[in-house]
Amino acid sequence: MATSSIEIVTLEPQPALAVRGDITPEEMPAFFGRAFNGVPGAAAAAGVELVGPPFGLYPSMPGERVEVEAGFPVSAAVGSTTSEGEAVHDLLLPGGEVAQVLHTGPYDTLGETYAALEAWMREQGLAAAGPPWESYLSDPEAEPDPQQWRTLVCWPVGGHGPGPTG
């Protein structure tokens, strides 16, 4: 696993279409497959374009169950719809200051990147200001070597506070 240096960037809020899941960790690959197959059809049917890589947003920290929103940034909000049997809805990826880091390697080592990001945020006196999300820059079907997969981890931050978990 390789992690690039962490940086603070300012992002504009980004409309997205997503599928909501409350799943077990074992169900994640199948859930993401359904979401990433269903959302493009919903976007096309609504007349909006995909404008970025697929993402997974995590409203709460994963445990025995994972609350996740998976989808794509789009050119405009469209409302709720159904595609490929999945309920697809509007979501707004947060804007403002975001701590971001590029993770290179398999998805099952992302926890190490999150731990490094949390430690860095504490050292900087920053607090989480919203849920983190991951943008999947590599397509595992096109790049079969998990050591080469690239995932951009983004976590909204605010002023000084107790840290990301406190």
Rank of each mutant, 00 (worst) to 15 (best):
V68D: 05
E67A: 14
Y58T: 00
P54E: 05
G166T: 03
L17A: 02
P53T: 14
P146L: 09
V101L: 09
G71S: 06
E143P: 04
E49F: 10
E27Y: 09
E12R: 07
I6P: 00
A128K: 04
T109G: 06
E27G: 11
A44D: 02
W149E: 02
S75F: 14
T3M: 15
G161V: 09
V157C: 08
G161F: 15
P29S: 14
E67M: 15
I6G: 03
I8P: 04
T81E: 00
D90W: 06
Q147A: 15
V78T: 10
R150M: 06
L57Y: 12
A87T: 11
R150Q: 15
T151Q: 04
E118M: 13
R34Q: 08
E97I: 12
Y136H: 05
D145N: 13
G161T: 11
A45N: 01
L117T: 05
V19P: 01
P53S: 15
A16P: 00
G41K: 06
E49H: 09
P106D: 05
A18L: 05
D145C: 05
V153W: 08
M61K: 15
S75L: 08
P62D: 07
V98I: 12
G41A: 10
E26D: 14
V51M: 06
L17S: 00
D145H: 13
D22N: 13
L126W: 14
A142T: 06
G47D: 07
P25T: 06
G52S: 03
M121N: 02
R34I: 02
P25W: 15
P29V: 06
G52K: 07
Q148L: 13
V74T: 01
W149Q: 03
Y58L: 02
G95V: 05
N37M: 11
T104M: 05
E67P: 05
A116P: 03
T24W: 10
L137R: 11
G158H: 14
R65F: 08
A119P: 00
G95W: 11
V19E: 01
V153G: 04
E143G: 06
V9R: 11
A70C: 13
G47W: 13
T165M: 14
G130C: 07
E7N: 06
E7M: 09
N37T: 12
E49T: 12
L57C: 04
E26F: 15
A46D: 02
T151L: 08
V39Y: 00
Y107N: 00
T3D: 12
W155K: 02
A116W: 09
A129Y: 12
P162T: 07
E84M: 10
S135W: 08
E118L: 11
V68S: 05
P140D: 12
Y136E: 01
L152M: 13
Q100R: 14
